[in-house]
Design a protein around this nucleic acid. Structure first.
Length: 420
RNA sequence: GUGGGUGUAGUUCAACGGCAGAGCACCGGAUUGUGGUUCCGGGCGUUGUGGGUUCAAAUCCCAUCACCCACCCCA
């Protein structure tokens, strides 16, 4: 084998393609029922868009972006996430002028230069929702509900919805200081990563998996206690809406999200049993982002989920989504002269929408019927010299083994197939 | 970027210093134009690649590449 697929990428082969298509269609339907419309943006954008939105210090920007320059030296990046491009388009196309609220969803590949492992790829496919135009906590709950209820509908019931509030920029700044104060005395005892985090991104300290660091977390101050009145009210309203929707959740102060643009609500939907990558969906509110990248100050909330992990979870649960369609009929042809002469009839059936399998490389009747059986076709349409002369065909029901002789006519064949 | 594991037929795996094999899948056949079960036949594969040790390497050693898993981070 001469060429290999690039590291961290994968081919979607036909047998899996049916599953992917099913999931994509299913997500489209769900989003549509909630009033969301599809938007598709390019897979690459000006690199600065991501640097500005995700934050210079974020891992995405620091080490995971695929950057390249075009012939004129313009700096682009393969999109590492979907929100910034959607917001860029929202601003650029003045969607805020069309309506006070904009409900969007997207599907497509994202790219991150990461070391691949189970459930993590360099090109991966996301589905996402963005609601732009209101700070009403109802919409926080609606966006969460779309993700949660859709996964439920697919058959995933052992999910954990974890939510948190990171507050507005004002209260999160206060909290960061409080956290730094709390952790500073333990500095020498922290793991090397956490030593760095203390200065660069103190909230990440709450996310550390090193046992000794987990100890310190127990008595750490909670963001909840440092939310201002408005943020507190917003958060409890979101919780109330979720309860009213019968969606159970747990509050997890460790949900802090990796990107800088999040404000207030942050959430994650977790499915245990996917190795180290158990997060199926992640999202949150980003009230400051639109202004930050050149638009007006407009509140928004959204989420993104990964198809690969979703597929994996569904597999773990033995949930069968979709498989290759079976032929309506298998075309069996015997004799010297038949091969040429049956073609108009064969094509007529196909044009009328039937899935007809046919393999001219198989010669004997036996071999062809064997293939018909293996294909799972409901019928075999058998034509030999005699039938050709009589302008008839034999329609055989592969389940019952019964066979009838009918005129060689597409219209009539279809009619007989319905009731035989 | 760091650590661990694995590379043998299309696939799942065996052979663990002495001629590279099996199941599944695939193809063909079992007397004239009717499938599923059964039976028979069909595989010379640079053992990921390149070096080294040895009379002899899939097997031991080194390097390299790829994949997998984990850290980090996230979908």
């Amino acid at each position: 084998m001469k060429y290999n697929i690039p590291r961290g990428t994968f081919d979607i082969l036909p047998k899996d393609s049916y599953k992917w298509q099913f999931l994509q269609d299913s997500f489209r339907k769900m989003a549509t029922c909630f009033g969301y419309e599809e938007m598709t943006t390019p897979v690459f954008e000006v690199a600065e868009l991501f640097e500005r939105s995700s934050g210079e210090s974020s891992d995405v920007v620091q080490k995971e972006m695929y950057r390249f320059q075009d012939k004129k030296g313009r700096k682009f990046a393969l999109r590492p996430e979907g929100t910034a491009p959607v917001v860029r388009s929202y601003i650029e196309n003045h969607l805020d002028k069309l309506s006070s609220r904009t409900k969007l969803f997207y599907l497509g590949p994202m790219f991150r230069y990461d070391r691949p492992q189970a459930g993590r790829y360099r090109q991966f496919y996301q589905y996402g929702i963005e609601f732009i135009g209101s700070n009403n906590p109802y919409y926080d709950a609606e966006v969460i509900a779309i993700a949660f209820l859709w996964l439920n509908k697919l058959g995933l019931n052992n999910l954990r919805l974890e939510i948190n509030s990171v507050g507005c920029p004002a209260c999160s700044a206060v909290y960061d200081n409080v956290l730094q104060e709390y952790y500073r005395p333990f500095l020498p005892k922290l793991c090397p990563d956490c030593m760095k985090r203390l200065e660069t991104n103190p909230r990440r300290l709450l996310d550390c998996k090193v046992p000794s660091c987990i100890e310190f977390r127990k008595n750490a101050p909670s963001q909840m206690d440092y939310l201002d009145e408005l943020c507190k009210k917003h958060f409890s309203a979101v919780c109330n809406y979720l309860q009213a929707m019968n969606i159970t959740y747990t509050v997890n102060p460790g949900i802090v999200r990796g990107l800088d643009y999040y404000t207030n609500t942050a959430f994650e939907i977790i499915y245990e049993g996917l190795g180290a990558q158990n997060s199926l969906v992640g999202g949150g509110r980003y009230n400051g982002l639109i202004e930050q990248i050149g638009g007006k100050s407009i509140p928004a909330i959204g989420f993104a989920g990964g198809f690969e992990r979703l597929l994996w979870a569904l597999e773990e649960e033995n949930i069968d989504l979709a498989s290759a369609p079976k032929p309506d009929a298998y075309f069996v042809c015997v004799g010297e002269n038949t091969r040429m002469q049956i073609l108009p009839y064969l094509n007529a059936l196909r044009i009328k929408g039937l899935f007809i399998d046919y393999d001219p490389d198989k010669n004997s009747l036996k071999a062809q019927l064997k293939a018909a059986d293996a294909s799972g076709a409901k019928y075999a349409i058998i034509i030999g010299e005699n039938e050709l002369a009589a302008k008839t065909v034999n329609l055989k029901n592969m389940q019952t083994g019964e066979q009838i002789t009918i005129p060689m006519d597409a219209e009539q064949t279809i009619k007989r197939m319905r009731c035989f």
